[in-house]
Design a protein around this nucleic acid. Sequence first.
DNA 1: CTTGTTTTATGATTTAAGTCATAAAATGAA
DNA 2: TTCATTTTATGACTTAAATCATAAAACAAG
Lengths: 198, 198
Amino acid sequence: MIAAELLEKYGAVKKFFSKNDIVFEERSLPAYYYQIISGEIKMSNYNDDGREFIQGIFYKEQSFGEPPLFLNQNYPANAIAVEDSEILLLPKNSFMKLLEENAAVSLKIIQNLAQRLYYKSVMAAEMSTQEPEHRVLKLIDHGIAYFNFKKDENGYLITFTRQQIGDLTGLRVETVIRTIKALEKKGILKIINRKVYR
Amino acid sequence: MIAAELLEKYGAVKKFFSKNDIVFEERSLPAYYYQIISGEIKMSNYNDDGREFIQGIFYKEQSFGEPPLFLNQNYPANAIAVEDSEILLLPKNSFMKLLEENAAVSLKIIQNLAQRLYYKSVMAAEMSTQEPEHRVLKLIDHGIAYFNFKKDENGYLITFTRQQIGDLTGLRVETVIRTIKALEKKGILKIINRKVYR
DNA sequence: CTTGTTTTATGATTTAAGTCATAAAATGAA
DNA sequence: TTCATTTTATGACTTAAATCATAAAACAAG
């Protein structure tokens, strides 16, 4: 996350996206640095038969879509507003200038990319083991650490839908539903009127 | 990749690893920046029942293991020499100093992390679609672009074993063997005395 | 308040990849 | 050169998750 004032100083503009609006599309070329002011953005792919895979979900103060921007490569996924969102857009050239002139920001970017790479590594290993219970739990535990899940008297409320969990772990909804029930039976999760707690 | 002279100027030392030597272990804390001079290093996880998942394979001039270094987190995987290798090791503090004093290096690091994140994103989407042919082909095509596969009159020679392809894609050897045969039958790959060409 | 859509839920069935067994080539070490 | 190990290969069988069908509850929009 880069301070909003700094981004604006270099010419970033605020843009509003309604729920389900497309921020950028797979295979298009990056032109901006994106940082969320408010709302929720998901990055996802659709495979040939329309099945979705969610690369990640991003919330306020988080940036997304930098890798292809730095590499001059096409986006490997779509970015879509999950709910009404405000995003700061900074054109690539201005962003690179900002980086050059503010050394501390580079380290922030590095740490952010490192964090995302770490998540991908952990999830990749987990997804390859093929055990739904493992996959779902790892995702949930990662979510607690890095998404904005809130804790109350029942534990952390997992704000992902079963469908989203499926799209993030490569499992089908039915499998996720059954897996979550199995985890509840084992006492690892709680289900309180359909909401999942950990 | 950072110039060897620059690394040495900051105190990097050359270390030799024999085939199958461990460079670092999962769950240990990072202490060095690693850059390969010669040889081949794989990063991989072993799940509860001993099954391996290869996060990546790295060759000369490439660095590996930076994300946990930047995050002060435990390594999520092991690094093992696939063959005899020489590696430059630079202690974390010196590495951070090098970064501070050499702005251009930060951008290199960013681009390198971006590249790896890009690969992970593409493979994650591919692995979740569950189609072995897709997974294997994506891996091979990525390998052609970023690993050192050599082209000859038959096309690019894929220097991964079936087992490695399996460990990189989350498939079993038998499935990889059958998948490669199927891809050959479709004319997408060539098999010339057991070697795979693309 | 009603209606359409999304989310959660469950049972029955299918299927593709995993597992198991076994072996021939190829490779490498002694 | 021989022997052990790794890699590639194939067939038979099993199994776990996907698929298909169907529905109730929850939620959102008009």
